[in-house]
Amino acid sequence: MKEIVLITGAGGMIARELSKKIEKEFTVRFLTRKKKHENDFEWDIKKGTIDESALDNVSHIIHLAGANISEKRWTQERKQELISSRVDSAGLLLETVRKKNIKLKSFISASGINYYGTVTTEKIYTEDDPPGNDFLSEVVVLWERAADDFKEQNLAERVVKIRTAVVLSKEDGALKKMLPTIQFGIGSALGSGKQYMPWIHIEDICSIYEAALKNSAVDGAYNAVSPQHTTNENLTKKIAEVLNKPLFIPNVPAFVLKLIFGELADALLEGSRASSQKIQETGFHFKFPDLKGALEDLLKKDN
């Protein structure tokens, strides 16, 4: 019998790609707001409702649910939604696991590289470093705490927290947003452009989740970030180079971004590096450790 894996955040790009990667070895179920497929089960985080049969005989939960950080301005209401979509959803899972008297083999939660703070420094952060002191750090700390509850309450043998960098995928996310302007020759870096931009190829982030699922020695927090560091400006230039497009436009001034995005602009204008050594020490190997190679894989398939 295949072990059953329950994935939340079914509509996200990682969930879609990850399910393809593991479906031969595991039975995959999804928790989603609206059932579309046979292996979908409905839940409503705001109402606190869940189809409990989704957890029947489940061995692993991969918790990817969470409202998009950069989709809207951060009003107080939006901030609460960003936290609730991560923390309350984990809490609903925890209560259901407890109610059904399940002991999970693993609870694997998405997390954010913003754990270390929205700052630009020369420091390269490791998993041993403390959290930052801004809003995104707060979100990630609460998110991880909700995951840790599964182990502390003896509901999971291990808890893995994947501190995810910017995921590069042509289908969704930051790269998809950057492509149109660069393709028209009007792309530009943001602010100084010197802020670091931790990144990871979609295939590598899915492989990290697969490794976390299969390798029982993987436990705790891991930075899911490519070994090669880059800045916002360098990323913009590399995309243009791979697409063979010119870049004529000067950087977008910081004040313009702050006018458009408010507090959210800080997440675009600041960024530091993080180390991937810990995940590599588990035996994990990046397929796309190099930025240019990653971009060529993503952008040249259709060109």
Rank of each mutant, 00 (worst) to 15 (best):
I7E: 02
I7A: 02
M13Y: 08
I14Q: 08
I14P: 04
R16F: 01
K24W: 03
F30L: 10
K34Y: 10
K35W: 03
K36F: 04
E38N: 13
E38M: 12
N39L: 08
D40M: 11
W43G: 12
D44R: 07
I45P: 00
K46S: 14
H63A: 06
T75A: 10
T75S: 15
L82P: 13
V87E: 09
D88E: 15
L92H: 08
K99T: 07
K105T: 03
I113Y: 13
I113K: 07
Y115Q: 07
E122G: 15
K123Q: 13
Y125R: 10
T126K: 15
T126M: 13
E127S: 09
D128I: 09
D129K: 03
P130W: 00
P131G: 06
N133F: 06
L136R: 02
V139L: 07
V140D: 10
A146Y: 15
A146W: 14
K151V: 08
Q153S: 11
E157V: 03
R158P: 03
V159I: 05
V159G: 07
K161M: 14
I162A: 13
I162N: 10
R163A: 11
L168V: 00
T181P: 05
T181M: 11
G185W: 07
G185N: 05
G187V: 01
G187L: 02
G191Q: 10
S192T: 15
G193Q: 03
K194C: 01
Q195P: 04
I200H: 10
I200V: 14
E203Y: 04
C206H: 06
C206F: 00
E210R: 13
A211V: 09
N215R: 09
V218W: 11
G220M: 01
Y222W: 03
A224N: 04
V225K: 10
P227Y: 06
Q228F: 11
Q228H: 10
T231E: 00
T231C: 01
N234D: 13
K237T: 02
E241W: 11
N244M: 08
N244P: 01
L247C: 05
I249E: 04
P250M: 04
P253A: 05
V256R: 01
V256K: 01
A265C: 08
S272A: 12
S272D: 05
R273N: 12
S276H: 08
S276F: 04
Q277N: 14
K278Y: 12
Q280M: 14
E281D: 15
T282R: 00
G283R: 02
K287I: 06
G293E: 15
A294L: 12
L295F: 11
L298M: 09
L299V: 09
